[in-house]
Amino acid sequence: MTMKIMVAIKRVVDYAVKIRVNPDKTGVVTQNVKMSMNPFCEIALEEALRIRESGSASEVVAVTIGPSHSVDTLRTGLAMGADRGIHVDYSASLYPLSVAKILTKLVQIENPGLLILGKQAIDDDCNQTGQMIAGLLNWPQGTFASKVVLDKEKQVATVDREVADGIETVCLNLPAVITTDLRLNQPRYATLPNIMKAKSKPIKKFTPEELNVEIKSDLEIVQVTEPPKRKAGVVVSSVDELIDKLKHEANVI
């Protein structure tokens, strides 16, 4: 039996960029800003590739939703080792519920045994999409995964989850949705030969209309602002001065 794994990836402002709110307060400045694959999505893709390399899966399909630029990110995923890509072309902003509906449709077309996603995107920090797809598909979910063990015979995945007071372990029947936390793995870099090879890997295109997904928005972004800055502090020269300030100025000890 051969299993297919689907991985959803998102193009975001690179994690190292110091972001700036744009002057009209509609969002952050993205012009001339380095864009990259969301780090959690890299971890998701890496996990799928490792499962394929271990022989437990036969194919890894990378999916992205966004404007034409997102194809670059998809190519990065193909260069890391995904077998093929799907690009859902959509330029306007999307909330996680619509993303979940689009991905649900693609799951119904592709029938993967596992859908792996990052637990959150580092732009909107929503942490919703994986859970929503699992709900829409009535699949079990293993969110915030730090370890995934597949049992091909029993068709189950055992997932260690990073939770508030430690590690929780759950066992999920396949098919299932897994969302990745930071310590699941260390993603590989795409090598130059693989970047060249990725250029000829197939990417299938869809639009939300073709997938029969109606994009509705039940949220309105009123504005995006910068958080107030903390006022500048002082540099103390000794432990004694620090203790004195904490005792008599800040009154916290």
């Binding site: 909330y95 919703q128 989850r161």
Partner: peptide
């Protein structure tokens, strides 16, 4: 918005066909 709420509420929201606001 702890590990319980983050895990459960978006799934519930999808079942109810509404967008949650998290965190």
């Amino acid at each position: 918005a702890n590990s319980f709420g983050k895990n459960v509420m978006p799934r519930a929201a999808a079942l109810l066909d509404v967008s949650p606001v998290t965190d």
